[in-house]
Computed example of a mutant assay.
Amino acid sequence: MSTTAESGGDGAPVTVTEEAASQAINLLESEGLDTDIAGLRLFVQQGGCAGLSYGMRFDDEPEGDDTITEHHGLRVFVDPSSLKYIEGSELDYENGLQAAGFHVENPNVEAECGCGESFRT
Rank of each mutant, 00 (worst) to 15 (best):
D79Q: 04
L74E: 08
P80Y: 03
R75Q: 14
R41M: 06
D59I: 04
D34A: 10
F43H: 10
A99Y: 09
A24S: 12
H72E: 12
D66F: 03
E94D: 10
F58W: 09
T15Y: 07
T121R: 12
L97Y: 12
A24F: 06
D34R: 07
T3F: 08
V14G: 03
M56I: 14
G101F: 08
E70L: 09
T69V: 05
D79P: 01
V16I: 07
P13F: 11
S118T: 02
M1T: 10
V16E: 08
D92L: 06
E29V: 14
V78L: 03
G55H: 00
H72L: 09
Y54C: 03
F119V: 05
H71W: 06
G39W: 05
Q45R: 13
R120A: 15
G116N: 08
G88N: 02
G9Y: 11
L74P: 05
L28E: 11
G32N: 10
V14M: 05
M1V: 12
S89G: 02
R75L: 11
F43W: 10
G9A: 11
T3K: 14
D59S: 08
G96P: 00
M1Q: 11
S22F: 08
G88D: 00
Y93R: 07
M56K: 07
I37L: 14
M56Q: 12
S82K: 00
D10G: 11
E70Y: 10
F77P: 02
D66Q: 01
L91N: 04
C115A: 12
T67Y: 10
A111L: 08
F43A: 12
E90G: 01
V109M: 04
E105M: 07
E19A: 15
K84S: 12
Q23F: 10
T4V: 15
G101N: 10
E110T: 14
L27T: 09
Q23S: 13
S2H: 11
D66I: 00
T15F: 03
A50D: 03
G8Y: 07
P13M: 04
L27S: 12
D66W: 01
N106D: 01
L83T: 01
S53G: 09
A38G: 09
Y85D: 09
A50R: 02
G39S: 03
R120S: 14
A5N: 15
V16T: 04
S2Y: 09
G32S: 07
N26W: 08
G48Q: 02
V109D: 05
P62K: 01
D36Q: 14
E105V: 07
T35G: 13
A20G: 06
N95V: 01
V104P: 00
T4P: 06
Y85E: 09
Q46H: 12
N106Q: 00
E105A: 08
E6V: 13
L40H: 04
G88P: 01
A111S: 14
V16C: 11
K84P: 00
V109K: 05
D10H: 13
D36E: 15
N95W: 05
G116F: 04
E31G: 05
G64F: 10
L33W: 10
M56H: 01
P107M: 07
V14Y: 04
V44F: 02
